[in-house]
């Protein structure tokens, strides 16, 4: 006798394609499909294996100290850092966080675009770009990033309810995807998706970031919000049927990691633990910053995925 249980799912999570190979109009060596699940995470035969993104930045001043220590030689060379994440760490995706744009009175738009282009040249993995977070400069930053990556199906972040127009415009104008971030609330996530749609972003270009609270400091809210978004999607709410991304970077700066005598081990443990839980709640892109987090997380996702039915 084989046991089954039907929770009454009606809908699949939308598939989103990220990155573009030469055949698809880009220059990446691979493109990924994410989403497509018709059941809970790791259950059933549908969907695609979660991906691991390694996140780097162009101005390490605000980067977690423990990561700066772990990446000393690369920290000021984003292109080499990206190549390292690709060839040595074997991440699935690279995310460049344009931290330089977060400085006061930022104006070096040319410099930022040079960085983006150098990373696109240094790695052929699909790229996520985390841009500015300031309405004053958003318009220029996202327009330039969008243009620089035209054809590559970048994932541009981050759209928020109070400032989403520039990200949306860049995605529409240059054919990219958007990360839609809302503050740990299922209904706000839904509202933002509707706003993006009204701005003209196609539903299959949206990835939901419900915001990942730090482990021990609100992560449980994120965990449940992810579960609720996934549940709502499977039950037919098309406004929430988008893949989820989780970036547990807040967990790198909590007291327990910052003050630990084994700060690297702590950083890895907290990042991996948070990422695994996020994957179990439904996240399909896991963004980590500590280089030591990639191998154990990869192994964990592999084990969770290997014996999946039909895979």
């Amino acid at each position: 006798m084989n046991y089954t249980y039907s929770p009454g799912w009606t809908t699949a999570v939308r598939e989103v394609i990220i990155g573009a190979t030469p055949d698809e109009g880009g220059t990446r060596r691979i493109s990924y499909r994410i989403g497509g699940e018709q059941d809970l995470p790791f259950i059933g035969s549908s969907g695609h294996k979660p991906l691991i993104a390694f996140e780097i930045c162009d101005d390490p001043a605000i980067w977690p100290e423990v990561v700066r220590c772990a990446c000393t030689k690369l920290i000021d060379r984003p292109a080499d850092w990206a190549a390292y994440a690709d060839t040595v760490l074997r991440a699935d995706l690279i995310r460049i966080n344009l931290t330089s744009t977060k400085r006061r009175n930022f104006s070096d738009f040319d410099g930022v675009i040079k960085t983006v282009k150098s990373i696109l040249a240094a790695t052929s993995l699909p790229l996520l770009i985390e841009g500015s977070a300031d309405l004053e400069i958003d318009s220029e930053v996202y327009q330039r990033c969008g243009e620089a990556g035209q054809g590559e199906r970048l994932v541009l972040g981050t759209a928020e309810a109070a400032r989403y127009r520039s990200v949306a415009a860049a995605a529409i104008a240059y054919g990219h995807c958007v990360i839609a971030q809302s503050p740990i609330d299922v209904n706000l996530a839904k509202q933002l998706n509707i706003l993006l749609r009204e701005a003209g972003v196609a539903d299959d270009r949206i990835i939901i970031d419900p915001y990942t609270g730090a482990l021990g400091y609100g992560f449980e809210y994120t965990y449940s919000t992810m579960e609720r978004i996934r549940f709502a999607a499977l039950k037919g709410d098309m406004d929430l049927a988008m893949p989820l991304i989780s970036a547990p970077s807040d967990s790198l700066t909590v007291k327990e990691v910052r003050e630990s005598v084994y700060s690297h081990e702590a950083a890895i443990a907290w990042e991996v633990a948070t990422s695994v839980a996020a994957a179990l709640a439904g996240a399909v892109i896991l963004v980590v910053r500590h280089p030591g987090s990639v191998p154990p997380l990869k192994e964990a996702i592999d084990t969770l995925w290997t014996e999946k039915e039909g895979v």
Binding site: L215, F219, E220, E265, A269, W270
Partner: peptide, 12 residues
Amino acid sequence: PEMDAALVMRQN
């Protein structure tokens, strides 16, 4: 550090 992470995850 792993033990701490696990204990905190459980608490969360």
